[in-house]
Write a protein that binds this DNA or RNA. Structure first.
Length: 505
RNA sequence: GCCCCGUUCGUCUAGCGGCCUAGGAUGUCUCCCUUUCACGGAGAAGACCAGGGGUUCGAAUCCCCUACGGGGUACCA
């Protein structure tokens, strides 16, 4: 049987890092086993629908390099892949369940049910459920006469269709990550399958679609673990073979405990979404990993290892390598904290490996975004990339950590106070004279270095009475790339003018 | 409340009965390289494996209990 996996988000907002990871594990498994990857949009909740979310999801997956075989845009053998367009299918299967007595019609309104629950809670029973213990006391096709049901439905009274969960039974299933899980049906409620608006609930639609789309492996977040037995029951009711299940551990917030949320991201200044997202209602903007300066391959590599550990000690690896090594049994069981420091390390590592030209568009974009001068040749920016590659953690560091490569330096007051003195000033004037004698042909790292050292030796100048001052003149700050390389990059006239500017201070 | 899942260095984790006086990575610190920063190199500190009972010649590894954490408990996914 050929392998089919699916990623099935609902378009209720931007996809966050946990969702991306789920999608990615599905993708890895599909690639590993030569299967297909489906993107199915689960938009059965009209109320929570957010405009733009669907597009966002697709954009985010694309940015992460997750390729979709079948989906809303791609089409496929079991289209449509948007649940809101599959209404008749769900109707049909619900009727089947109804006629086989495996589901029933219920008239209790949401209001009545919440009332029921609050009453139960007051009398010391907080976990009231609509299940086989209580359904006999409710208003449904199990307690009403056939005629009464008919009369109510025909008069247009709203109703839902619920699953008739078998009494007193144990549901067993094997989770590929956690092993055997057992739940008693007394713990499972008679889930609503079809809402009063005629749309299916997640549970129903999900099972029907997974079956129809021949999904063989369901990999999803741990929040679905408690409803997995219900899903098994549904497969049973239809007489279908269930796929294999794997429930991924959750991604937890970096500090304290709990599921990582957008709020945590805001609080800690850490992105949780792949791309920038603007809330269509409030207009509130949230920064994504991409725009914050993270590389997609670094993010994906880091994220893949959040909960998965292949055999051996490799950490930095290509997607191809991950596909090669992936196995669901190697996914851990416990929740994982989102460790931004480790992501930074991955990002830095990936930046170092990229060729210089890779950074050109990013540098230009950052310059533009910062409102800085953008008038630089590619040749110049290639050298900047070369100089900054080992020093950048985020993509924007190519600009932000070296603004002096693009505009006149601002002198750091502490650095200035410490290093700017009479001796240094005189030495800088002397160096300026030495370098002024170089013509543009001779203005290169080698000559700059040689002429400077020649002069230093003949005049017995110690490094510490020249080098810091040179750096101060060129960059204004105490750290950064080699001063001579900077002078080379800046060129003669700019270098000399920076000397003069400092000397005039 | 009830149900389900989990618990090894700060963090991500290796470990699936003896190789563990618990390994790697990251982070932290020290030293080297270096005119600075970063990279790179070499080291150090850091978990008595949540706690308690078993099982066994032998347990981080198997079983039970407790604690703690998380998830679920909707006409949301």
């Amino acid at each position: 049987m050929s392998v089919v996996v699916r990623f099935a988000p609902s378009p209720t907002g931007p996809l966050h890092i946990g969702g991306i990871r789920t999608a990615f594990y599905n993708y890895l498994l599909a690639k590993k086993l030569g299967g297909k990857f489906i993107l199915r949009i689960e938009d059965t909740d009209q109320v929570r629908f957010v405009p733009g979310a669907e597009e966002y999801i697709m954009e985010a997956l694309r940015w992460c390099g997750i390729e979709i075989d079948y989906g809303v845009r791609e089409g496929g053998p079991d289209a449509p892949y948007r649940q809101s367009e599959r209404g008749v299918i769900y109707q049909q299967y619900t009727q089947q369940l109804l006629s086989e007595g495996k589901a029933y019609i219920a008239f209790d309104t949401p209001g009545e049910l919440t009332e029921m629950r609050t009453q139960a809670e007051k009398s010391g029973n907080p976990g009231w459920q609509y299940n086989y213990l209580t359904r006999k006391g409710m208003i449904n096709s199990l307690t009403l006469s056939e005629a009464a049901v008919k009369q109510r439905t025909e008069s247009g009274e709203p109703y839902v269709i619920r699953l008739k969960v078998p009494e007193d039974q144990e549901v067993h299933f094997k989770d590929e990550i956690r092993g055997e899980v057992v739940v008693h049906t007394s713990q499972i409620d008679d889930k609503v399958l079809m809402k009063s608006d005629g749309l299916p609930t997640y549970h129903l639609a999900n099972i029907i679609d997974d079956h129809l789309m021949k999904v063989t492996h369901v990999i999803r977040g741990e929040e679905w673990l408690p409803s997995a037995p219900l899903h098994l029951l549904l497969y049973q009711a239809f007489g279908w073979n269930p796929p294999s299940f794997a429930h991924l551990p959750l991604i937890l917030r970096p500090d304290g405990n709990g599921k990582l949320s957008k709020r945590d991201g805001d609080r800690l200044g850490v992105p949780v979404f792949p791309l920038d997202w603007t809330d269509p209602d409030t207009g509130e903007k949230t920064n994504g990993f991409k725009e914050s300066g993270y590389l997609p391959d670094a993010l994906v590599n880091f994220m893949a290892l959040l909960g998965w550990h292949p055999e051996g000690n490799e950490e930095v690896m290509s997607v191809e390598r991950m596909i090669e090594l992936f196995s669901i049994e190697k996914v851990g069981k416990s929740g994982t904290k989102f460790d931004i420091d480790k992501l930074h390390w991955f990002n830095q590592t990936y930046i170092k490996q990229k060729p210089n030209e890779y950074f050109l568009p990013y540098i230009k974009e950052t310059l533009l975004k910062q409102g800085m001068n953008t008038d630089f040749t590619d040749e110049y920016l290639m050298k900047v990339a070369h100089l900054m590659k080992e020093r950048a953690v985020l993509m924007k560091d190519f600009v932000l950590k070296a603004t002096y490569l693009y505009q006149a330096p601002e002198y750091d007051s502490a650095f200035m106070a410490k290093q700017w003195n009479e001796t240094g000033k005189n030495n800088l004037i002397a160096l300026s004279n030495v370098w002024s004698r170089l013509n543009s042909e001779e203005w290169n790292t080698q000559r700059l270095h040689d002429t400077m050292h020649e002069w230093m030796t003949t005049n017995s100048i110690a490094n510490k009475f020249l080098m810091p001052q040179l750096r101060l003149a060129l960059t204004g700050v105490s750290g950064g790339p080699d001063s001579i390389e900077i002078a080379d990059l800046l060129g003669k006239s700019e270098t000399i003018s920076r000397f003069e500017r400092l000397i005039a201070q």
